[in-house]
Amino acid sequence: MHTTIQPQSPPLAGITGRRVLGAAGLGPATLGFRDGSVAPQAPQSGPCLDAGDLLVLPGIVDIHGDAFERAVMPRPGVSFPYPGALLDVDRQLLANGITTEFHGVTLSWEGGLRGEAYALRMFETIAQLRPVLGAAHKVHLRFEAYHLAGVQTALSWMAAGRVDLLAINDHLPMMARRMGDERKMQQYAERAECDVETFRSRLRAASGNAQEVPEAMSRLIAAARDAGLPVASHDDPDLATRQHYHRRGCRIAEFPLTVEAATLARQLGDDIVFGAPNVVRGTSHTGAPNATEMVAAGLCTVLASDYNYPAPLQAAFRLAQLGVLDLPGAWKLVSRNPARAAGLRDRGTLAPGQRADAILVDDRQPGLPRVCATIVNGELKHAAAFLPLVDLADAGTLAA
């Protein structure tokens, strides 16, 4: 018995639809693709995807997503090989309209899932699977401030071009307050792949680095800036912290814990990231400011998936449904703005010269948008519905 493998379909010449989100808003348009980018003019021939009445939107750029950790370690202490896990994550991203993903890889004194060995597996797997991955996979290095032993490692990773965004995290004080909570300590220990007493010892040892942390973080931030990397500070609790990190070149306030910190970030011209799950759920799971209210107040420029890949898509539509923003305005929070915050000037909008990253969305059911197709770099990478291809040379007048 012989199996015939069909050749790949030819690259798309473009896409046409009656509701395409362009610079002038939503309207009929035909976009041409050339060498993975949006062409200056509509194509005259070749296969063109006909979106019909589906929404055609720029692909989602997610600058903070750590839901991959659940694919790697679906249960505490139960880890799976990275290649299969990352391939599964890639399919999740495409199905949820995310065309560029910044994986929140943590380098922490904790060890285990958030230690050096797991981070190295992520780097190696992304490089290994790049030819078969559909989305663009990048690394957002979440560096735990008290992990002084990891500073040189992080510096070497940045110098080698393995890191695409640096964020300074400091979860140690919160963990230290929970030292007597056996249930939380057990959870932390399982993630760190050690017993509870070993985890407590690691926490105490890291706590002893307090006096050296500011200088070490200044060094790390300076190296990132010299390498041209965007830098974020995570969970700013107050005005002083945001001012401190802004002065050192951290121009992204990621998940500020107070309205005051977010307000100062806005006054300083910094980007402000909140979690898209916060919008979808209507509240923060940690007691942080309500993201919907922050968007309404102009105190949020970016929404990130955080721990739930479907959330950016759902959050943008929810904001439009609530009347907080119109859909083009809400979509900037998950596409154009995160791309700019991450220093990516080549994506985030469907404009000539930009990467041809687009998604087709069925929005007929209110509050439940569904991604029907995902195009990355001009190639169809995911399809969940029948979508006709037309040859423009024979099709006559399409959307224009």
Rank of each mutant, 00 (worst) to 15 (best):
H244C: 12
G298D: 04
M294Q: 07
R281F: 02
V279Q: 02
V231H: 07
S305A: 14
G282H: 10
T286K: 11
A240N: 11
L303Y: 01
A291E: 06
T241R: 08
L264P: 00
A304E: 00
A261L: 07
E254V: 05
F255D: 03
Q243W: 09
H246L: 05
L299C: 04
V280F: 06
R248W: 11
A240W: 08
A296G: 08
A240P: 03
V273Q: 06
L264T: 03
A297I: 05
P230N: 15
Q243G: 02
L257Y: 03
E293D: 13
Y245F: 15
E260T: 10
Y245W: 15
H234L: 09
D271S: 15
I252L: 11
A304L: 01
T292A: 12
A296Q: 12
L257N: 08
L299W: 02
C300I: 06
T292C: 12
N290G: 07
L303S: 01
V259S: 08
E260S: 12
A232R: 01
L268I: 06
A291T: 08
V295K: 05
A253N: 10
D271C: 14
H285L: 14
Q243S: 11
C250S: 15
N290R: 13
L257G: 09
L303C: 06
A253K: 01
Y307M: 04
A288S: 15
A262N: 05
I272L: 09
T292R: 09
A253T: 01
T301V: 09
A262E: 04
L264M: 14
N290V: 14
V295M: 07
P277Y: 06
H246P: 01
T301K: 04
H246F: 13
A291K: 03
P230G: 12
P230A: 11
G249E: 05
N278A: 09
T263P: 00
T292F: 02
D235Q: 11
P237L: 14
Q243L: 12
Q267E: 15
N278G: 10
H244Q: 14
N278H: 11
A304T: 02
I252V: 14
A253L: 04
A253G: 11
E293R: 02
H246I: 08
A262C: 12
A232Y: 03
A265Q: 03
G282V: 11
N278Q: 12
T283L: 07
V273T: 04
N290A: 14
L303R: 02
G282T: 10
H285M: 11
D306M: 03
Y245C: 07
E260Y: 05
R247W: 09
T241H: 10
V280K: 01
R281Q: 13
G275I: 04
E260W: 07
L299D: 04
A232T: 07
V280H: 07
R281Y: 00
F255T: 01
P230Y: 14
T241F: 03
A262I: 03
F255H: 02
P289S: 07
M294E: 06
C300E: 05
I272P: 03
T292V: 11
A240F: 08
Y307F: 14
G298C: 10
R247L: 13
R248T: 07
N290Y: 07
G282C: 06
D236Y: 03
E293Y: 00
R266I: 09
S284E: 08
D238P: 10
M294L: 15
